[in-house]
Simulated scan of single mutants.
Amino acid sequence: MPAVTLQDVAARAGVSQATASRVLNGSTRIPGEGVADRVRTAARELGYVPNAQAQALARASTGLLGLIVHDIADPYFSSIVRGVQAASRTARKQVLLASTDRDFDIERESVSTFIAHRADAIVLAGSRQSGHLDREIEGEFGRYRANGGRVVVIGQPLAFGSAVEPENHFASAELADALVASGHTEFAVIGGPASIRTSVDRRNGFVEALGRRGLTPLVEVSGNFTRDGGHSAAQRLAAALQLTPDHGRKPPCVFAVTDVMAIGAIAAWREMGLIVPRDVCIAGFDDIPTLRDHTPSLTTVALPLEEIGMRAVALALRLDADDLRERVPGDVILRDSTRLS
């Protein structure tokens, strides 16, 4: 059975094909209500399915929003995705999602695909390597924006587009101050890749705050922004500090620049017979949802991750202004993982 065409609907309703198109494809030029009702009734009776591309042309909008994240399995990004989806549903937008594993080729392909599908806006979640976009992607975004597309970054702002920027540097400094105030005097750091701005900002904010109090980390190690990255870094840190089970000394306090890395570190130390916080204390950053079930409860900086996703959508849909910047503060939460006995 051949598919029902727009011409079939127009003939059933007794109107021109152009009139039927304006009614069914969402044009702002809709004919009188009686005519529109006849067209909708004819479409329903015939089982006509509107063409999405035709609707987009009629409305000058596809209703699509592209979202690019580094790793959908990371609770940090999955929480942001949840916020983006919630805000998009409210705005009657559909989300196209790409997870890139920090691979520029995948990111480039994703941007090209979203632009080809005429997404109304594209949101990039997460720090760029060394703070810059690939030049080819930047060129595509330039053409995209010239044609009315909107770009929003979650993380450090780019040279163009809007941004929702967590206060990584300031919040990690607040964490350092809170830990010193709670009695800690010896610190170490598990950082992330030096090419990633988020990692650098969090590390620098923490270390600089310690420096203002005359303190310097005993050891600094780094790893990938993953659970396994934190696990490996924690093993090297324990060896450098010569940590042993029930060593009887005041435990050093380790700052891991993400909660995911902190969880990996705790797992590594547990395998070595080290107990948190008896032998070593640790704090993270993000307050990811999975911390609710983690023991010991993890000291961290809480970011409103779902809200960040929702705010990015709000910026993406604003037509009255461009290149806006919103900063998001973090809240220090002291929990059992840094409790001194």
Rank of each mutant, 00 (worst) to 15 (best):
V4I: 10
Q53L: 15
L133Q: 08
P277E: 04
L241Q: 08
R311H: 13
G126Y: 06
F114H: 01
R318F: 01
D331C: 07
S195N: 08
I137A: 13
H117R: 15
R339A: 14
R202H: 00
V221T: 12
D331V: 11
S341M: 09
V260L: 15
G284I: 03
Q7H: 14
I196F: 13
S127G: 11
V153D: 09
A262P: 01
R59W: 06
A13R: 12
E306L: 07
A159N: 08
F285M: 03
R203Y: 09
L57H: 00
V328G: 03
R40G: 09
T198M: 05
H70I: 09
H247Q: 10
Q242H: 14
V207Y: 04
E138R: 08
L46Q: 00
T290I: 12
L303N: 09
S88L: 05
S130T: 07
I266H: 12
V23R: 03
A125Y: 06
H70S: 12
G161S: 04
L57R: 03
E271H: 09
L303A: 08
G192Y: 11
G161V: 01
T299F: 05
A267M: 10
D286N: 02
E33C: 03
R327H: 15
D286E: 01
D134S: 06
E45R: 04
D279K: 03
A314R: 14
L243D: 01
D37I: 13
P251T: 07
A268K: 02
L133C: 03
D287P: 01
T299N: 04
E186L: 14
V95G: 00
V276L: 11
P157W: 03
G139K: 04
V328F: 06
V164N: 08
A256C: 14
R203E: 15
I68E: 00
G126P: 04
A312Y: 08
L291F: 08
G47S: 08
G309A: 07
A52M: 13
R40V: 07
E307M: 12
D177N: 13
Q85A: 10
T41E: 15
A209W: 06
L65N: 02
D322C: 11
P50K: 07
T299L: 09
G284H: 04
R150F: 05
G191N: 15
A321W: 11
F77K: 03
L237K: 11
I333L: 14
T90C: 10
Q94M: 14
G32D: 15
S21M: 05
F77M: 07
A36R: 14
L124P: 09
H184F: 00
R128G: 11
S110A: 15
D8W: 11
M261K: 01
A283R: 04
L334F: 04
I80G: 12
I308G: 00
G205Y: 03
T295W: 14
S88R: 02
G131M: 06
Q53A: 15
S27C: 10
H294A: 02
R311Y: 11
H231R: 14
E109T: 05
S61H: 10
G309T: 05
E33M: 12
A3Y: 09
H169C: 10
R311L: 15
F255M: 07
S337F: 02
A181D: 15
L334W: 09
R212S: 10
S199D: 09
L215A: 00
E208I: 07
V189N: 01
N51A: 03
E186G: 13
G223Y: 05
L65P: 00
A239R: 13
A119R: 08
L175T: 09
G230A: 06
R40D: 14
V95Y: 00
S27L: 10
L319Q: 14
A312R: 05
